[in-house]
Design a protein around this nucleic acid. Sequence first.
DNA 1: CAAGATACGTCAGCCTTGTTGACATTACCA
DNA 2: TGGTAATGTCAACAAGGCTGACGTATCTTG
Lengths: 169, 169
Amino acid sequence: MAEGSGPPGGQALLFLTDEQLRTGIEAMFFAYRGFTADPDRILAEKDYGRAHHRALHFIHRSHGTTVNNLLSILGVTKQSLNRVLRTLIEDGLVESRVGTVDKRERHLFLTETGAALERELSDAQRDRMRAAYRAAGPAAVAGFRQVLEAMMDEDMRRHYLALRDRERG
Amino acid sequence: MAEGSGPPGGQALLFLTDEQLRTGIEAMFFAYRGFTADPDRILAEKDYGRAHHRALHFIHRSHGTTVNNLLSILGVTKQSLNRVLRTLIEDGLVESRVGTVDKRERHLFLTETGAALERELSDAQRDRMRAAYRAAGPAAVAGFRQVLEAMMDEDMRRHYLALRDRERG
DNA sequence: CAAGATACGTCAGCCTTGTTGACATTACCA
DNA sequence: TGGTAATGTCAACAAGGCTGACGTATCTTG
């Protein structure tokens, strides 16, 4: 599949060789470590983990989301999420309000302290992201997002697009 | 930092707004799930985990690498790597040969069975990667890699570039 | 050559975060 | 009113990180 009697397209499809794909895989691996490194350092100091960060992020992003919706965004079991959510609520970072239209539902909100931690974490993560974006330039950023979007599972893409389309920019 | 009395550059730096950066963060999160989903399914059947996949991948990529080098690529402790490596060796997927020039070192190689599993895993992962690359096109792929490279920690980038520059394509 | 450093393996224990299975409560809905 | 849905919780388990400590070869250097 790689060299030699190449596929129709030849030079034009060079970015699809196994070598190129493998390098892309490694880029994802190494970049993801960088992506999580800064928030991880902050979280470690405060005895929280990456799971707490994810919950804070998406609750911030969707004020008043329900537990079920959060579960489906995060793609974990409710037992797993609950463990994290419980500590966040106990520690006063997240507030859970009974639904008004459907009282079985709980709507999740960040408290002031929760919002402060979320901001600290996402500031750190955005700083790196901003540096990377700036270094690569707008055209590269557009490509970056196109490839990532194409890489998602269908379900995740639905969630992603719903969030993405809130962008005002 | 976002709208209003914008920074110098205005429209030209729109891709650096907090909203855009946040969406990039979410893209990384959702895409990484897709990125690992296919190999994870295969691994689950065979009672291996993502950690085994990573070891197989990098041993394949650098035949005869030493344990120390692998440690520094993976960025985990030797105890953590050893647990994984031990099972791979016991199961006959990896071979560990005493170094010839420095007998303290162990050089790691995939056996035929190890190479077969590595191929199965990376085929699955590459299939998704290929589909994403094809959907996005060569320009997007170039941008994708630029941003990821800029996102890495310095140490990881060194490892990445060393591997990347083996590309023959 | 002796002493220290290096490469590796391993034991033990701990943590986070994922899983399954089971069960209870409350609330909606047909 | 009975079934289903949304949530919370208990228990047990596994993967894969971590630290700390120790042992054994094997280099390397004074």
